[in-house]
Nucleic acid binder design. Structure first.
Length: 282
DNA sequence: ATTTCATCCTGGAGGC
DNA sequence: TGCCTCCAGGATGAAA
Protein backbone atom coordinates (compact mmCIF):
# COMPACT_ATOMS: atom_id res chain seq x y z
CA UNK A 1 0.00 0.00 0.00
CA UNK A 2 0.87 3.42 0.12
CA UNK A 3 2.84 3.52 3.35
CA UNK A 4 3.09 6.38 5.82
CA UNK A 5 4.92 8.87 3.55
CA UNK A 6 2.52 8.31 0.67
CA UNK A 7 -0.55 8.64 2.88
CA UNK A 8 0.93 11.78 4.45
CA UNK A 9 1.31 13.32 1.01
CA UNK A 10 -2.29 12.48 0.19
CA UNK A 11 -3.37 14.03 3.50
CA UNK A 12 -1.49 17.23 2.65
CA UNK A 13 -3.13 17.36 -0.75
CA UNK A 14 -6.56 16.96 0.81
CA UNK A 15 -5.83 19.69 3.37
CA UNK A 16 -5.18 22.08 0.50
CA UNK A 17 -8.08 20.90 -1.62
CA UNK A 18 -11.09 19.94 0.48
CA UNK A 19 -10.81 21.27 4.03
CA UNK A 20 -13.59 23.83 4.50
CA UNK A 21 -15.76 22.44 1.71
CA UNK A 22 -19.33 21.22 2.17
CA UNK A 23 -20.17 17.76 0.85
CA UNK A 24 -22.86 18.06 -1.80
CA UNK A 25 -23.25 14.39 -2.59
CA UNK A 26 -21.72 10.94 -2.26
CA UNK A 27 -21.98 8.07 -4.68
CA UNK A 28 -20.94 4.47 -4.19
CA UNK A 29 -20.15 2.44 -7.29
CA UNK A 30 -18.71 -0.57 -5.49
CA UNK A 31 -20.44 -1.25 -2.15
CA UNK A 32 -18.00 -4.02 -1.28
CA UNK A 33 -15.31 -1.50 -0.38
CA UNK A 34 -17.49 0.01 2.34
CA UNK A 35 -16.63 -1.70 5.55
CA UNK A 36 -19.67 -2.74 7.51
CA UNK A 37 -18.51 -1.90 11.01
CA UNK A 38 -21.90 -1.03 12.42
CA UNK A 39 -22.34 1.34 9.52
CA UNK A 40 -25.16 0.73 7.07
CA UNK A 41 -23.78 2.57 4.12
CA UNK A 42 -26.99 3.10 2.18
CA UNK A 43 -28.50 4.97 5.07
CA UNK A 44 -25.36 6.31 6.72
CA UNK A 45 -23.94 7.77 3.56
CA UNK A 46 -26.63 10.45 3.88
CA UNK A 47 -24.94 11.60 7.06
CA UNK A 48 -22.15 13.18 5.02
CA UNK A 49 -24.35 15.34 2.85
CA UNK A 50 -24.60 19.01 3.80
CA UNK A 51 -21.71 18.74 6.22
CA UNK A 52 -18.37 20.51 6.08
CA UNK A 53 -14.94 18.88 6.15
CA UNK A 54 -13.06 20.48 9.03
CA UNK A 55 -9.82 18.48 9.16
CA UNK A 56 -7.74 15.75 7.55
CA UNK A 57 -5.92 13.41 9.93
CA UNK A 58 -3.47 10.62 9.27
CA UNK A 59 -2.86 7.76 11.66
CA UNK A 60 -0.35 5.18 10.48
CA UNK A 61 -1.40 4.40 6.92
CA UNK A 62 -4.99 5.48 7.52
CA UNK A 63 -6.57 8.67 6.28
CA UNK A 64 -9.33 10.29 8.32
CA UNK A 65 -11.55 12.94 6.76
CA UNK A 66 -13.24 14.70 9.67
CA UNK A 67 -16.67 16.34 9.26
CA UNK A 68 -18.31 19.06 11.32
CA UNK A 69 -20.79 16.60 12.87
CA UNK A 70 -18.37 14.43 14.89
CA UNK A 71 -18.30 11.95 12.04
CA UNK A 72 -15.42 11.05 9.76
CA UNK A 73 -14.66 9.06 6.66
CA UNK A 74 -11.88 6.54 7.28
CA UNK A 75 -9.91 5.57 4.18
CA UNK A 76 -7.59 2.56 4.18
CA UNK A 77 -5.86 2.45 0.81
CA UNK A 78 -4.86 -1.21 0.64
CA UNK A 79 -2.22 -2.01 -1.98
CA UNK A 80 -3.41 0.08 -4.89
CA UNK A 81 -5.84 2.66 -3.50
CA UNK A 82 -5.70 6.23 -4.76
CA UNK A 83 -7.48 9.38 -3.59
CA UNK A 84 -7.70 11.86 -6.44
CA UNK A 85 -9.10 15.35 -6.68
CA UNK A 86 -10.90 15.70 -9.99
CA UNK A 87 -13.37 17.86 -11.85
CA UNK A 88 -16.67 16.19 -12.70
CA UNK A 89 -16.05 16.93 -16.38
CA UNK A 90 -12.92 14.76 -16.47
CA UNK A 91 -13.10 11.34 -18.12
CA UNK A 92 -14.12 8.55 -15.76
CA UNK A 93 -11.45 6.22 -14.50
CA UNK A 94 -11.79 2.46 -14.25
CA UNK A 95 -12.11 1.15 -10.66
CA UNK A 96 -13.51 4.40 -9.26
CA UNK A 97 -15.49 2.95 -6.38
CA UNK A 98 -16.52 6.00 -4.41
CA UNK A 99 -17.04 9.67 -5.28
CA UNK A 100 -17.57 12.66 -2.98
CA UNK A 101 -19.02 15.72 -4.71
CA UNK A 102 -18.30 19.32 -3.72
CA UNK A 103 -19.66 22.64 -5.00
CA UNK A 104 -18.16 23.88 -8.25
CA UNK A 105 -17.88 20.43 -9.87
CA UNK A 106 -14.97 19.48 -7.64
CA UNK A 107 -14.88 15.78 -6.73
CA UNK A 108 -12.88 13.35 -4.64
CA UNK A 109 -12.45 9.95 -6.29
CA UNK A 110 -11.44 6.77 -4.51
CA UNK A 111 -9.85 4.51 -7.12
CA UNK A 112 -8.57 1.02 -6.29
CA UNK A 113 -8.00 -1.70 -8.92
CA UNK A 114 -7.31 -4.53 -6.51
CA UNK A 115 -10.09 -3.53 -4.12
CA UNK A 116 -8.05 -4.23 -1.00
CA UNK A 117 -8.83 -0.72 0.22
CA UNK A 118 -11.69 0.03 2.61
CA UNK A 119 -13.85 2.98 3.53
CA UNK A 120 -15.84 3.36 6.71
CA UNK A 121 -18.01 5.98 8.36
CA UNK A 122 -16.72 6.72 11.85
CA UNK A 123 -18.99 8.06 14.62
CA UNK A 124 -18.09 10.14 17.69
CA UNK A 125 -14.68 11.11 16.43
CA UNK A 126 -12.36 12.89 18.86
CA UNK A 127 -10.23 14.99 16.56
CA UNK A 128 -7.30 14.84 18.99
CA UNK A 129 -7.48 11.07 19.38
CA UNK A 130 -9.28 9.19 16.61
CA UNK A 131 -8.09 5.76 17.79
CA UNK A 132 -11.17 5.06 19.91
CA UNK A 133 -13.55 5.76 17.02
CA UNK A 134 -11.56 3.47 14.71
CA UNK A 135 -11.56 0.63 17.21
CA UNK A 136 -15.27 1.18 17.76
CA UNK A 137 -15.74 0.64 14.03
CA UNK A 138 -13.84 -2.64 14.21
CA UNK A 139 -10.44 -1.59 12.90
CA UNK A 140 -7.33 -3.05 14.50
CA UNK A 141 -5.53 -1.10 17.19
CA UNK A 142 -2.42 0.78 16.05
CA UNK A 143 0.95 1.11 17.71
CA UNK A 144 2.89 4.37 18.14
CA UNK A 145 3.46 6.42 14.98
CA UNK A 146 6.68 5.40 13.24
CA UNK A 147 7.54 9.07 12.75
CA UNK A 148 7.15 10.01 16.40
CA UNK A 149 7.93 6.85 18.35
CA UNK A 150 10.10 7.54 21.40
CA UNK A 151 13.27 5.69 22.26
CA UNK A 152 11.54 3.93 25.14
CA UNK A 153 8.50 2.99 23.06
CA UNK A 154 10.72 1.58 20.33
CA UNK A 155 12.79 -0.51 22.72
CA UNK A 156 9.52 -1.85 24.10
CA UNK A 157 8.32 -2.65 20.58
CA UNK A 158 11.39 -4.81 20.06
CA UNK A 159 10.69 -7.05 23.04
CA UNK A 160 9.70 -10.03 20.91
CA UNK A 161 11.07 -13.30 19.57
CA UNK A 162 9.86 -12.49 16.07
CA UNK A 163 12.33 -11.56 13.35
CA UNK A 164 12.80 -7.81 13.00
CA UNK A 165 11.41 -7.67 9.47
CA UNK A 166 7.96 -9.04 10.31
CA UNK A 167 7.81 -7.20 13.61
CA UNK A 168 8.29 -3.80 11.97
CA UNK A 169 5.52 -4.59 9.49
CA UNK A 170 3.06 -5.25 12.35
CA UNK A 171 0.92 -2.12 12.66
CA UNK A 172 -0.05 -3.04 16.22
CA UNK A 173 3.60 -2.72 17.27
CA UNK A 174 4.52 0.34 15.22
CA UNK A 175 2.22 2.16 12.82
CA UNK A 176 3.07 3.33 9.33
CA UNK A 177 5.85 1.13 7.97
CA UNK A 178 5.33 -1.17 5.00
CA UNK A 179 7.58 -3.40 2.96
CA UNK A 180 9.54 -0.65 1.19
CA UNK A 181 10.51 1.44 4.20
CA UNK A 182 11.21 -1.53 6.47
CA UNK A 183 13.75 -2.82 3.94
CA UNK A 184 15.26 0.65 3.51
CA UNK A 185 15.47 1.34 7.25
CA UNK A 186 17.07 -2.03 8.01
CA UNK A 187 19.67 -1.36 5.33
CA UNK A 188 20.39 2.14 6.64
CA UNK A 189 20.90 0.75 10.15
CA UNK A 190 22.96 -2.23 8.93
CA UNK A 191 20.54 -4.69 10.52
CA UNK A 192 19.88 -8.06 8.90
CA UNK A 193 16.12 -8.61 8.36
CA UNK A 194 16.26 -12.09 9.92
CA UNK A 195 17.62 -10.93 13.29
CA UNK A 196 15.34 -11.79 16.20
CA UNK A 197 14.03 -8.48 17.52
CA UNK A 198 15.06 -8.82 21.16
CA UNK A 199 18.62 -9.71 20.16
CA UNK A 200 19.27 -6.10 19.16
CA UNK A 201 21.32 -4.10 21.64
CA UNK A 202 19.85 -0.85 22.95
CA UNK A 203 22.39 1.03 20.87
CA UNK A 204 21.37 -0.75 17.66
CA UNK A 205 17.70 -0.27 18.50
CA UNK A 206 18.28 3.45 18.93
CA UNK A 207 20.15 3.61 15.63
CA UNK A 208 17.36 1.73 13.83
CA UNK A 209 14.76 4.07 15.30
CA UNK A 210 16.69 7.12 14.10
CA UNK A 211 17.05 5.65 10.60
CA UNK A 212 13.33 4.83 10.43
CA UNK A 213 12.42 8.39 11.32
CA UNK A 214 15.02 9.87 8.96
CA UNK A 215 13.91 7.80 5.97
CA UNK A 216 10.23 8.53 6.53
CA UNK A 217 11.00 12.26 6.82
CA UNK A 218 12.96 12.26 3.58
CA UNK A 219 10.35 10.17 1.78
CA UNK A 220 7.57 12.54 2.87
CA UNK A 221 9.62 15.52 1.68
CA UNK A 222 10.12 13.84 -1.70
CA UNK A 223 6.47 13.05 -2.33
CA UNK A 224 6.70 9.37 -1.36
CA UNK A 225 7.67 6.35 -3.43
CA UNK A 226 5.88 5.25 -6.58
CA UNK A 227 6.46 1.56 -7.24
CA UNK A 228 3.63 1.32 -9.73
CA UNK A 229 0.30 2.63 -8.51
CA UNK A 230 0.90 5.36 -5.98
CA UNK A 231 -0.22 8.85 -6.97
CA UNK A 232 -0.85 11.92 -4.85
CA UNK A 233 -4.19 13.76 -4.96
CA UNK A 234 -3.06 15.60 -8.09
CA UNK A 235 -2.12 12.32 -9.80
CA UNK A 236 1.64 12.90 -9.47
CA UNK A 237 4.15 10.11 -8.80
CA UNK A 238 6.50 10.12 -5.79
CA UNK A 239 10.15 11.06 -6.30
CA UNK A 240 11.64 8.93 -3.52
CA UNK A 241 11.66 5.88 -5.85
CA UNK A 242 15.04 6.82 -7.27
CA UNK A 243 16.52 7.17 -3.80
CA UNK A 244 15.78 3.57 -2.81
CA UNK A 245 18.92 1.67 -1.84
CA UNK A 246 17.71 -1.95 -1.59
CA UNK A 247 14.00 -2.24 -2.30
CA UNK A 248 13.43 -3.89 -5.71
CA UNK A 249 17.18 -3.76 -6.49
CA UNK A 250 17.78 -7.52 -6.40
CA UNK A 251 21.07 -8.35 -8.18
CA UNK A 252 22.10 -4.71 -8.50
CA UNK A 253 25.24 -3.50 -6.71
CA UNK A 254 24.96 -2.20 -3.16
CA UNK A 255 25.53 1.54 -3.23
CA UNK A 256 27.90 1.22 -0.26
CA UNK A 257 29.99 -1.92 -0.89
CA UNK A 258 29.13 -3.03 -4.42
CA UNK A 259 27.91 -6.52 -3.46
CA UNK A 260 24.78 -7.73 -5.24
CA UNK A 261 21.56 -6.98 -3.34
CA UNK A 262 19.78 -10.19 -2.39
CA UNK A 263 16.09 -11.02 -2.15
CA UNK A 264 14.53 -13.48 0.24
CA UNK A 265 10.96 -14.19 1.35
CA UNK A 266 10.36 -13.50 5.05
CA UNK A 267 6.91 -13.94 6.51
CA UNK A 268 5.46 -14.16 3.03
CA UNK A 269 6.88 -10.79 1.99
CA UNK A 270 9.88 -10.18 -0.24
CA UNK A 271 12.84 -8.68 1.56
CA UNK A 272 15.78 -6.95 -0.06
CA UNK A 273 19.10 -6.55 1.68
CA UNK A 274 22.86 -6.32 1.26
CA UNK A 275 24.52 -9.48 2.63
CA UNK A 276 27.70 -7.56 3.47
CA UNK A 277 26.37 -4.30 4.93
CA UNK A 278 23.53 -5.87 6.92
CA UNK A 279 25.32 -8.19 9.30
CA UNK A 280 24.34 -6.51 12.56
CA UNK A 281 23.11 -9.13 14.99
CA UNK A 282 22.91 -7.14 18.20
C1' DA B 1 -1.98 -15.26 24.00
C1' DT B 2 0.91 -15.01 19.94
C1' DT B 3 2.10 -15.77 15.54
C1' DT B 4 1.66 -17.71 10.92
C1' DC B 5 -0.91 -18.36 6.69
C1' DA B 6 -4.22 -18.17 3.07
C1' DT B 7 -7.11 -15.03 1.08
C1' DC B 8 -9.24 -11.07 -0.82
C1' DC B 9 -8.32 -8.77 -6.24
C1' DT B 10 -6.45 -6.78 -10.89
C1' DG B 11 -2.77 -5.85 -13.94
C1' DG B 12 1.91 -5.74 -15.61
C1' DA B 13 6.06 -8.27 -16.89
C1' DG B 14 8.39 -11.91 -18.83
C1' DG B 15 8.73 -16.67 -20.91
C1' DC B 16 7.43 -19.45 -24.72
C1' DT C 1 -0.28 -11.82 -30.91
C1' DG C 2 -1.73 -14.69 -27.18
C1' DC C 3 -1.55 -17.57 -23.37
C1' DC C 4 0.58 -18.84 -19.26
C1' DT C 5 2.79 -18.07 -14.70
C1' DC C 6 4.54 -15.17 -11.32
C1' DC C 7 4.68 -11.10 -8.79
C1' DA C 8 3.08 -6.80 -6.39
C1' DG C 9 3.49 -1.14 -1.54
C1' DG C 10 -1.70 -4.66 2.98
C1' DA C 11 -4.91 -6.29 6.49
C1' DT C 12 -7.42 -9.84 8.53
C1' DG C 13 -9.78 -13.93 10.33
C1' DA C 14 -8.99 -18.62 11.06
C1' DA C 15 -5.92 -21.96 12.51
C1' DA C 16 -1.85 -23.65 14.89
Amino acid sequence: MPELPEVENIARGLRREVVGLVVKGVSVNEPRIIREGGCKWRKDIEKYIGHRIIAILRRGKRLIIVMDNKRAMLVQLGMTGQVLIKNSSEPTKKHTHFVVKFPGNKELWFVDPRRFGRLCLLENVDIDNPDAAMEEAGFARLGPEATGITREEFRQTLVSKRVIKTLLLDQIRIAGLGNIYVDEALFAAGVNPLVVADMLSDETADLLRREIRKILRRAIANGGTTFSDFRDTAGEKGRFSKMLRVYQRTGEPCRICGRAIERMVIGGRSSHFCPKCQTMKG
